[in-house]
């Protein structure tokens, strides 16, 4: 798709639409993974975990560290696939543990407090992580050296658009993770317990569900997904830095609400829709008003469906 002739707006729209869909799906895959963690935690605790974006940032840095460790000047030590899988696994594990630690120390003591208290301690955690990273790793931007793993030229030229191998990797990885998550939640005992706790924590506890274990599990999975999102962001957009979690966290929150907060397929759908909405805003309206367009979409959706796209109409508890 080399520089094209300037045509009518409609022609440009049709010509660039496929490429913009690819762009939007990539962005949406990342948003969806972040939104999942938000939504899962919300589901079991009704807590807006504002430190979630920073967990994602830590994931991106862990991935960066692993990548640098296995790609010295002389070239990659293993096959690229193995390195990428390692990056994902280490980041997911690290972030999962981080999520559990955050839950244990910042949220658990506040479990029976007014709802806004953990919100503030979440902000405290977010401040702490961000500045701890800046203190130890400085405020400099780091660049993933993706090109040493995946050749920039690799990809499929569809004629009307180009799907690079990196983007394909990101989208496929995200979808695989989502399928695994669905399996965990639908088929395993812990997953079932998680759904039970989400519906009614006290009733679940009375039925013998170990609520604490479920909450730890939820934080682990949600944070691990954020870690994966961080690594995928690094692979496709290359730049990582200490402040990246802030905006990403807000996007994840938006996507989770868009889909119906607490609803897991909703978070996935919300992520993809938000990614596409932002991309289309840049592509066909204006890059300047990207966030405005995204929020207007959100507001319209919520006005039509006050509980998000897939949010269930649970009768209000009295």
């Amino acid at each position: 798709m080399h520089t094209q002739e300037v045509g009518k707006p409609m022609d440009i729209f049709i010509a660039t639409l496929p490429q913009q869909i690819i762009n939007g799906l990539t962005l949406g895959a990342v948003y969806a993974l972040i939104a999942l963690g938000y939504s899962m935690v919300y589901g079991v605790l009704q807590l807006l975990n504002f430190a979630h974006g920073d967990v994602y940032m830590v994931g991106a840095f862990i991935g960066y560290g692993v990548m640098m460790a296995f790609i010295p000047e002389s070239g990659p030590l293993f096959a690229p696939v193995i390195i990428i899988i390692l990056m994902l696994l280490v980041a997911m594990l690290g972030c999962g543990v981080l999520g559990i630690v955050i839950e244990q120390f910042a949220y658990r003591p506040l479990r029976n407090s007014p709802r806004i208290a953990p919100l503030i301690s979440a902000l405290g955690v977010s401040f702490f992580i961000q500045n701890a990273i800046q203190l130890t790793l400085t405020a400099q931007f780091r660049n993933y050296e993706t090109e040493k793993l995946i050749a920039p030229a690799a990809g499929i030229d569809l004629g009307f658009a180009r799907l690079s191998a990196t983007r394909a990797l990101v989208i496929v990885t995200a979808i695989v993770l989502m399928i695994v998550l669905q399996y965990l939640i639908k088929r395993t005992r812990l997953g079932k317990a998680m759904r039970a706790v989400a519906i009614d924590r006290e009733a679940a506890a009375m039925m013998g569900v170990n609520v604490d274990r479920v909450i730890i599990f939820t934080f682990f999975i949600g944070s691990a997904l954020a870690g994966a999102a961080g690594v995928l962001t690094g692979i496709v957009f290359t730049r990582v830095w200490h402040f990246m979690g802030f905006a990403a966290g807000l996007k994840g929150f938006t996507a989770a609400v868009l889909g119906g907060i607490g609803n897991i397929p909703g978070a996935m759908l919300g992520g993809f829709i938000l990614g596409l909405a932002e991309t289309f805003a840049v592509g066909f309206i204006s890059a300047t008003y990207k966030d405005v367009v995204a929020f207007v979409v959100l507001i319209i959706v919520l006005l039509l469906r006050p509980r998000g796209l897939l949010g269930a109409r649970i009768p209000q508890k009295v």
Binding site: T3, Q20, G24, L27, F246, A247, V282, G283, A287, T288
Partner: peptide, 24 residues
């Protein structure tokens, strides 16, 4: 041909690149 604003937090420039490519 066009004037757009991004924020310093933006990392995804792919859709803007598509727009610029199509603008000639």
């Amino acid at each position: 041909l066009g004037r757009e604003s991004v924020t310093q937090e933006d990392t995804d420039f792919s859709s803007l690149a598509t727009v610029i490519g199509a603008s000639g």
